[in-house]
Protein backbone atom coordinates (compact mmCIF):
# COMPACT_ATOMS: atom_id res chain seq x y z
CA UNK A 1 0.00 0.00 0.00
CA UNK A 2 1.48 3.32 -1.03
CA UNK A 3 1.91 6.22 1.34
CA UNK A 4 -0.76 8.85 1.04
CA UNK A 5 1.40 11.59 -0.47
CA UNK A 6 4.42 11.44 -2.76
CA UNK A 7 6.06 14.35 -4.53
CA UNK A 8 6.89 13.83 -8.19
CA UNK A 9 9.69 15.81 -9.88
CA UNK A 10 10.88 15.71 -13.48
CA UNK A 11 14.22 17.49 -13.75
CA UNK A 12 15.59 18.31 -17.19
CA UNK A 13 19.30 18.37 -16.36
CA UNK A 14 21.65 16.17 -14.36
CA UNK A 15 22.43 19.03 -11.99
CA UNK A 16 18.76 19.57 -11.31
CA UNK A 17 18.32 15.85 -10.76
CA UNK A 18 21.18 15.75 -8.25
CA UNK A 19 19.71 18.70 -6.43
CA UNK A 20 16.26 17.13 -6.34
CA UNK A 21 17.52 13.86 -4.92
CA UNK A 22 19.13 15.44 -1.85
CA UNK A 23 15.93 15.15 0.13
CA UNK A 24 14.86 12.64 2.72
CA UNK A 25 13.48 9.39 1.26
CA UNK A 26 13.82 10.60 -2.32
CA UNK A 27 14.40 8.06 -5.08
CA UNK A 28 15.31 8.17 -8.75
CA UNK A 29 12.74 6.70 -11.12
CA UNK A 30 13.79 5.35 -14.52
CA UNK A 31 11.26 3.20 -16.35
CA UNK A 32 9.49 2.28 -13.15
CA UNK A 33 9.48 -1.50 -13.54
CA UNK A 34 11.82 -2.15 -10.62
CA UNK A 35 10.57 0.77 -8.57
CA UNK A 36 6.98 -0.42 -8.86
CA UNK A 37 7.95 -3.85 -7.53
CA UNK A 38 9.82 -2.38 -4.58
CA UNK A 39 7.00 0.07 -3.94
CA UNK A 40 4.30 -2.59 -3.95
CA UNK A 41 6.26 -4.87 -1.66
CA UNK A 42 6.85 -1.82 0.50
CA UNK A 43 10.60 -2.08 0.48
CA UNK A 44 10.54 1.61 -0.40
CA UNK A 45 8.10 4.32 0.64
CA UNK A 46 9.50 7.42 -1.05
CA UNK A 47 8.37 10.88 -0.09
CA UNK A 48 9.75 12.19 -3.38
CA UNK A 49 10.20 10.57 -6.76
CA UNK A 50 12.71 12.09 -9.16
CA UNK A 51 11.84 10.93 -12.65
CA UNK A 52 14.75 10.81 -15.08
CA UNK A 53 12.69 10.52 -18.27
CA UNK A 54 13.03 14.21 -19.10
CA UNK A 55 16.83 14.02 -19.09
CA UNK A 56 17.84 13.82 -22.74
CA UNK A 57 21.50 13.26 -21.87
CA UNK A 58 20.89 9.75 -20.55
CA UNK A 59 19.03 8.19 -23.44
CA UNK A 60 21.63 7.56 -26.14
CA UNK A 61 23.75 4.67 -27.37
CA UNK A 62 27.11 5.53 -28.91
CA UNK A 63 29.53 3.04 -30.39
CA UNK A 64 33.12 3.89 -31.19
CA UNK A 65 36.08 1.72 -32.16
CA UNK A 66 37.03 1.03 -28.56
CA UNK A 67 33.96 1.56 -26.51
CA UNK A 68 30.19 1.19 -26.33
CA UNK A 69 28.43 3.78 -24.19
CA UNK A 70 24.82 3.26 -23.18
CA UNK A 71 22.94 6.00 -21.36
CA UNK A 72 21.32 4.83 -18.15
CA UNK A 73 17.79 5.66 -19.41
CA UNK A 74 18.09 3.48 -22.52
CA UNK A 75 15.33 0.88 -22.54
CA UNK A 76 15.81 -2.87 -22.70
CA UNK A 77 13.83 -3.07 -25.92
CA UNK A 78 16.10 -0.48 -27.56
CA UNK A 79 19.18 -2.48 -26.51
CA UNK A 80 17.76 -5.82 -27.55
CA UNK A 81 16.71 -4.50 -30.95
CA UNK A 82 20.07 -2.94 -31.86
CA UNK A 83 21.72 -4.88 -34.69
CA UNK A 84 25.07 -3.25 -34.05
CA UNK A 85 25.02 -4.27 -30.38
CA UNK A 86 23.94 -7.79 -31.19
CA UNK A 87 27.01 -8.14 -33.42
CA UNK A 88 29.38 -6.77 -30.78
CA UNK A 89 27.87 -7.92 -27.49
CA UNK A 90 25.31 -10.67 -28.10
CA UNK A 91 25.22 -11.64 -24.41
CA UNK A 92 23.81 -8.20 -23.60
CA UNK A 93 21.22 -8.03 -26.36
CA UNK A 94 20.05 -11.55 -25.56
CA UNK A 95 19.70 -10.78 -21.85
CA UNK A 96 17.91 -7.48 -22.54
CA UNK A 97 15.54 -9.28 -24.91
CA UNK A 98 14.38 -12.00 -22.51
CA UNK A 99 13.44 -10.11 -19.38
CA UNK A 100 9.78 -9.82 -18.37
CA UNK A 101 7.68 -9.24 -21.44
CA UNK A 102 7.47 -6.70 -24.28
CA UNK A 103 5.71 -4.13 -22.07
CA UNK A 104 8.33 -4.44 -19.34
CA UNK A 105 11.20 -4.24 -21.84
CA UNK A 106 9.77 -1.08 -23.38
CA UNK A 107 9.86 0.67 -20.00
CA UNK A 108 12.74 -0.94 -18.10
CA UNK A 109 16.04 0.96 -18.31
CA UNK A 110 19.57 -0.35 -18.09
CA UNK A 111 20.42 2.02 -15.25
CA UNK A 112 17.40 0.90 -13.28
CA UNK A 113 18.23 -2.76 -13.80
CA UNK A 114 21.71 -2.22 -12.39
CA UNK A 115 20.62 -0.10 -9.43
CA UNK A 116 17.84 -2.50 -8.43
CA UNK A 117 20.42 -5.21 -7.69
CA UNK A 118 17.96 -8.06 -7.64
CA UNK A 119 20.32 -11.03 -8.08
CA UNK A 120 17.87 -12.79 -10.38
CA UNK A 121 18.16 -10.15 -13.09
CA UNK A 122 19.46 -11.17 -16.49
CA UNK A 123 21.31 -8.06 -17.65
CA UNK A 124 23.93 -7.67 -14.87
CA UNK A 125 25.68 -11.01 -15.52
CA UNK A 126 25.85 -10.25 -19.23
CA UNK A 127 27.42 -6.85 -18.58
CA UNK A 128 29.91 -8.27 -16.06
CA UNK A 129 30.94 -10.91 -18.59
CA UNK A 130 31.58 -8.03 -20.99
CA UNK A 131 33.75 -6.07 -18.48
CA UNK A 132 31.27 -3.21 -18.27
CA UNK A 133 31.97 -0.16 -16.16
CA UNK A 134 29.29 1.97 -14.49
CA UNK A 135 29.71 5.75 -14.67
CA UNK A 136 28.00 7.78 -11.95
CA UNK A 137 27.54 11.38 -10.88
CA UNK A 138 26.76 12.87 -7.52
CA UNK A 139 27.13 16.26 -5.88
CA UNK A 140 30.60 15.08 -4.87
CA UNK A 141 31.71 14.50 -8.46
CA UNK A 142 31.94 11.64 -10.95
CA UNK A 143 33.34 8.16 -10.71
CA UNK A 144 33.54 4.91 -12.63
CA UNK A 145 33.07 1.49 -11.03
CA UNK A 146 33.66 -1.85 -12.78
CA UNK A 147 30.34 -3.68 -12.64
CA UNK A 148 32.16 -6.72 -11.23
CA UNK A 149 32.76 -4.60 -8.10
CA UNK A 150 29.38 -2.89 -8.08
CA UNK A 151 27.25 -5.37 -6.12
CA UNK A 152 27.55 -5.77 -2.36
CA UNK A 153 24.56 -7.94 -1.49
CA UNK A 154 20.87 -8.57 -2.06
CA UNK A 155 19.47 -5.24 -3.34
CA UNK A 156 22.75 -3.61 -2.28
CA UNK A 157 25.24 -1.76 -4.45
CA UNK A 158 28.19 0.57 -3.91
CA UNK A 159 26.02 3.52 -4.95
CA UNK A 160 25.72 6.30 -2.41
CA UNK A 161 22.20 7.51 -1.58
CA UNK A 162 22.16 10.41 -3.99
CA UNK A 163 24.44 8.98 -6.66
CA UNK A 164 23.07 8.74 -10.19
CA UNK A 165 24.09 6.16 -12.79
CA UNK A 166 24.64 8.15 -15.96
CA UNK A 167 25.93 5.52 -18.34
CA UNK A 168 27.35 2.06 -18.81
CA UNK A 169 30.61 1.65 -20.76
CA UNK A 170 31.55 -1.61 -22.42
CA UNK A 171 34.97 -2.06 -24.01
CA UNK A 172 34.93 -3.22 -27.61
CA UNK A 173 37.31 -6.18 -27.54
CA UNK A 174 38.57 -7.83 -30.72
CA UNK A 175 37.89 -11.56 -31.06
CA UNK A 176 35.49 -11.68 -28.13
CA UNK A 177 32.41 -13.84 -28.29
CA UNK A 178 29.66 -13.83 -25.73
CA UNK A 179 26.41 -15.55 -24.93
CA UNK A 180 23.67 -15.47 -22.32
CA UNK A 181 21.37 -18.38 -21.48
CA UNK A 182 18.58 -18.40 -18.93
CA UNK A 183 16.67 -21.34 -17.55
CA UNK A 184 13.00 -20.65 -16.82
CA UNK A 185 11.34 -24.07 -16.59
CA UNK A 186 8.00 -22.86 -15.22
CA UNK A 187 7.15 -19.86 -17.38
CA UNK A 188 8.91 -17.70 -19.92
CA UNK A 189 7.73 -14.77 -17.84
CA UNK A 190 9.45 -15.94 -14.66
CA UNK A 191 12.78 -15.00 -13.15
CA UNK A 192 15.44 -17.53 -14.09
CA UNK A 193 16.18 -20.56 -11.95
CA UNK A 194 19.68 -19.79 -13.16
CA UNK A 195 21.10 -17.53 -15.86
CA UNK A 196 24.61 -17.82 -17.25
CA UNK A 197 26.55 -15.24 -19.22
CA UNK A 198 29.87 -16.22 -20.76
CA UNK A 199 32.46 -14.42 -22.82
CA UNK A 200 35.51 -15.92 -24.51
CA UNK A 201 38.27 -13.73 -25.95
CA UNK A 202 40.80 -15.13 -28.41
CA UNK A 203 44.20 -13.72 -29.25
CA UNK A 204 44.84 -11.80 -32.44
CA UNK A 205 45.29 -15.04 -34.40
CA UNK A 206 41.88 -16.15 -33.14
CA UNK A 207 43.49 -19.36 -31.86
CA UNK A 208 44.56 -19.21 -28.22
CA UNK A 209 42.13 -18.12 -25.58
CA UNK A 210 43.21 -15.00 -23.75
CA UNK A 211 40.32 -14.38 -21.46
CA UNK A 212 37.15 -16.06 -20.26
CA UNK A 213 34.35 -14.75 -18.06
CA UNK A 214 31.52 -16.79 -16.62
CA UNK A 215 28.88 -14.97 -14.59
CA UNK A 216 25.71 -16.44 -13.09
CA UNK A 217 22.48 -14.94 -11.78
CA UNK A 218 19.71 -16.39 -9.63
CA UNK A 219 22.12 -18.49 -7.59
CA UNK A 220 23.40 -16.11 -4.93
CA UNK A 221 22.89 -12.75 -3.26
CA UNK A 222 24.65 -10.98 -6.14
CA UNK A 223 25.68 -11.98 -9.66
CA UNK A 224 28.44 -14.58 -9.28
CA UNK A 225 31.68 -14.31 -11.20
CA UNK A 226 33.07 -17.85 -11.52
CA UNK A 227 36.79 -17.11 -11.85
CA UNK A 228 38.09 -20.61 -11.17
CA UNK A 229 35.87 -22.00 -13.90
CA UNK A 230 37.07 -19.34 -16.31
CA UNK A 231 40.68 -20.18 -15.47
CA UNK A 232 40.06 -23.86 -16.31
CA UNK A 233 38.79 -22.94 -19.76
CA UNK A 234 41.82 -20.74 -20.42
CA UNK A 235 44.22 -23.43 -19.21
CA UNK A 236 42.61 -26.08 -21.42
CA UNK A 237 42.17 -23.63 -24.29
CA UNK A 238 38.50 -24.59 -24.31
CA UNK A 239 39.03 -28.25 -25.04
CA UNK A 240 35.94 -30.38 -24.25
CA UNK A 241 37.40 -31.67 -21.00
CA UNK A 242 38.18 -28.16 -19.77
CA UNK A 243 34.64 -27.03 -20.49
CA UNK A 244 33.21 -29.91 -18.47
CA UNK A 245 35.58 -29.22 -15.60
CA UNK A 246 34.79 -25.53 -15.70
CA UNK A 247 31.06 -26.23 -15.61
CA UNK A 248 31.51 -28.64 -12.72
CA UNK A 249 33.54 -26.10 -10.75
CA UNK A 250 30.72 -23.58 -11.00
CA UNK A 251 28.83 -25.63 -8.44
CA UNK A 252 31.35 -24.50 -5.83
CA UNK A 253 31.10 -20.85 -6.81
CA UNK A 254 27.33 -20.48 -6.57
CA UNK A 255 25.39 -20.03 -3.35
CA UNK A 256 21.71 -20.68 -4.18
CA UNK A 257 18.79 -21.08 -1.79
CA UNK A 258 15.57 -23.08 -2.00
CA UNK A 259 12.53 -21.37 -3.47
CA UNK A 260 9.70 -22.12 -5.90
CA UNK A 261 12.18 -21.95 -8.78
CA UNK A 262 14.02 -24.98 -7.42
CA UNK A 263 15.92 -26.35 -4.47
CA UNK A 264 19.46 -25.17 -3.82
CA UNK A 265 20.78 -28.56 -4.99
CA UNK A 266 18.82 -28.40 -8.21
CA UNK A 267 19.98 -24.86 -8.93
CA UNK A 268 23.56 -25.99 -8.39
CA UNK A 269 23.08 -28.85 -10.86
CA UNK A 270 21.44 -26.54 -13.37
CA UNK A 271 24.28 -24.02 -12.97
CA UNK A 272 26.59 -26.73 -14.26
CA UNK A 273 24.34 -27.68 -17.17
CA UNK A 274 23.79 -24.10 -18.31
CA UNK A 275 27.40 -23.04 -17.84
CA UNK A 276 28.45 -25.81 -20.20
CA UNK A 277 25.74 -24.81 -22.66
CA UNK A 278 26.66 -21.12 -22.49
CA UNK A 279 30.34 -21.89 -23.06
CA UNK A 280 29.50 -24.14 -26.00
CA UNK A 281 27.31 -21.43 -27.48
CA UNK A 282 30.17 -18.94 -27.17
CA UNK A 283 32.53 -21.31 -28.94
CA UNK A 284 30.12 -22.54 -31.61
Amino acid sequence: MPSTKTEFLAPTSIDEALQAISYEDAIFLGGGTSTALLYKTRLIEPSRVVWLGALRDLSGISISKNEIRIGSMVSMSKISQSNELSQLVPALTTAAGVIGNARVRAMATIGGALAHADPRQDVPPALIALDAVVATKSSGGSREVPLAEFYEGFLETVLAESELITEVKIPVVANRRSAYLRYTPTSEGDYPTVGVAASVTYDSNNKAIKDVRIVLCGVGQTPILATDSAQKVIEGNANPESLREAANLVKQAVDPHDDERGSADYKREMSEVFTLRALRECLA
Binding site: N101, G189, D190, E260
Partner: peptide, 13 residues
Protein backbone atom coordinates in the same frame (compact mmCIF):
# COMPACT_ATOMS: atom_id res chain seq x y z
CA UNK B 1 1.57 -12.24 -3.27
CA UNK B 2 1.58 -10.83 -6.79
CA UNK B 3 1.00 -11.93 -10.35
CA UNK B 4 4.80 -12.06 -10.57
CA UNK B 5 4.82 -14.87 -8.04
CA UNK B 6 1.45 -16.44 -8.82
CA UNK B 7 2.28 -17.67 -12.30
CA UNK B 8 -0.40 -18.00 -14.96
CA UNK B 9 0.45 -19.11 -18.50
CA UNK B 10 1.38 -16.32 -20.88
CA UNK B 11 1.30 -16.52 -24.67
CA UNK B 12 4.94 -17.59 -24.90
CA UNK B 13 4.28 -20.55 -22.61
Amino acid sequence: QSMGEFKLPNMAD
